[in-house]
Amino acid sequence: MIKDFLKGLVFGSVVGGSAGLLLAPQSGNDTRRKLQQNLEEAAATQEDLNQSIENFSASLKRTQSLVTQLVPDLQDSLKKDIEAFQFQAEPRINRIKKQAEVLQEHLDIPETTNRSTKD
């Protein structure tokens, strides 16, 4: 039984190999040449990708450096602007509150007089 299996394996290998050689669309040299070109293109693409990654990494580092320099300055500037706005707005807000109180007093007076005339 094992002898039959081995005979079949050898026979199948010989027939398959022969058919592959006879029916192959290209010669072995052409196939190897194409395979070599594809490998060279893949290697070049990988080199380009590696270079792009290095460039991106360098750009990212420069951006991080700029951000760490600019953010504190921006925060200080915003803090000063907010303080200046509060300094200018506080007296105005107080005047508006006083005017609102005066208006409220004027509005309250007619209501009490209207109530007393209705009673």
Rank of each mutant, 00 (worst) to 15 (best):
M1E: 14
I2A: 12
K3F: 07
D4C: 04
G8L: 05
G8R: 08
V10P: 00
V10F: 08
F11S: 09
F11K: 14
S13W: 12
S13L: 15
V14Y: 00
G17K: 11
A19H: 11
A19I: 13
G20A: 12
L21Q: 14
L22M: 12
L22A: 13
L23G: 03
L23V: 08
L23F: 11
Q26A: 15
Q26G: 05
Q26W: 06
Q26D: 07
S27Y: 14
G28W: 15
G28E: 15
N29E: 15
N29H: 13
D30I: 13
R33M: 06
K34I: 02
L35H: 05
Q36T: 11
Q37R: 13
N38W: 15
L39V: 12
L39A: 12
A42C: 09
A43Q: 15
T45E: 12
E47A: 11
D48S: 13
L49P: 02
Q51A: 09
S52I: 07
E54T: 10
N55C: 05
N55P: 02
S57L: 02
A58Q: 07
S59R: 13
S59T: 05
L60D: 05
L60N: 07
R62W: 00
L66A: 07
V67G: 01
V71N: 01
P72N: 01
D73A: 11
Q75A: 09
Q75K: 09
D76R: 12
D76N: 12
S77V: 00
S77I: 00
L78Q: 03
K79W: 03
K79R: 06
D81Q: 06
I82H: 05
E83P: 00
E83S: 04
F85Q: 06
F85S: 04
F85N: 02
E90V: 03
P91E: 01
I93Q: 14
I93V: 15
N94S: 15
N94V: 13
R95D: 14
I96C: 07
I96R: 10
K97Y: 10
K97H: 09
K97R: 14
K98R: 14
K98N: 14
Q99V: 06
L103T: 03
L103V: 02
Q104R: 09
L107S: 04
L107F: 04
L107T: 00
D108C: 04
P110Q: 00
P110G: 00
R115E: 14
R115C: 08
T117E: 12
K118M: 10
D119N: 15
